Computed example of a mutant assay.
Amino acid sequence: MRLTPEAEVPDGFKRRVRVEKPHASVYAHPKVFKAIREIAAAQGCKPHDIYLEGLRLALRAHGRDFDALNRGE
Rank of each mutant, 00 (worst) to 15 (best):
M1A: 13
R2H: 03
T4W: 13
T4S: 15
P5F: 15
E8W: 00
V9M: 14
P10T: 00
G12K: 01
G12C: 02
G12T: 04
F13R: 15
K14N: 00
K14F: 01
R16F: 14
V17Y: 12
R18L: 08
R18Q: 06
R18M: 03
E20Q: 11
K21T: 05
H23E: 06
A24R: 00
A24C: 12
S25W: 03
V26G: 12
Y27H: 11
A28Q: 03
H29D: 11
H29W: 04
H29Q: 07
P30F: 04
K31I: 05
K31V: 08
K31W: 02
V32Y: 05
V32K: 03
F33N: 13
F33C: 12
K34R: 07
K34S: 10
A35C: 02
E38W: 02
E38S: 13
A40N: 06
A40C: 01
A41K: 15
A42G: 10
A42M: 09
Q43H: 14
Q43N: 08
Q43G: 02
H48K: 15
I50M: 06
I50E: 00
Y51N: 09
L52N: 05
E53Y: 05
E53T: 10
E53R: 13
G54T: 14
L55W: 14
R56C: 07
R56M: 04
R56G: 01
L57Y: 05
L59F: 09
L59C: 02
R60A: 10
R60N: 06
R60Q: 14
A61W: 02
A61Y: 00
A61T: 14
H62Q: 07
G63S: 09
G63L: 06
G63D: 11
R64S: 05
R64L: 09
D65S: 07
F66W: 10
F66R: 11
D67K: 05
A68D: 03
A68T: 00
N70D: 03
N70T: 04
N70E: 02
G72A: 03
G72Q: 02
G72N: 03
G72R: 07
E73S: 12
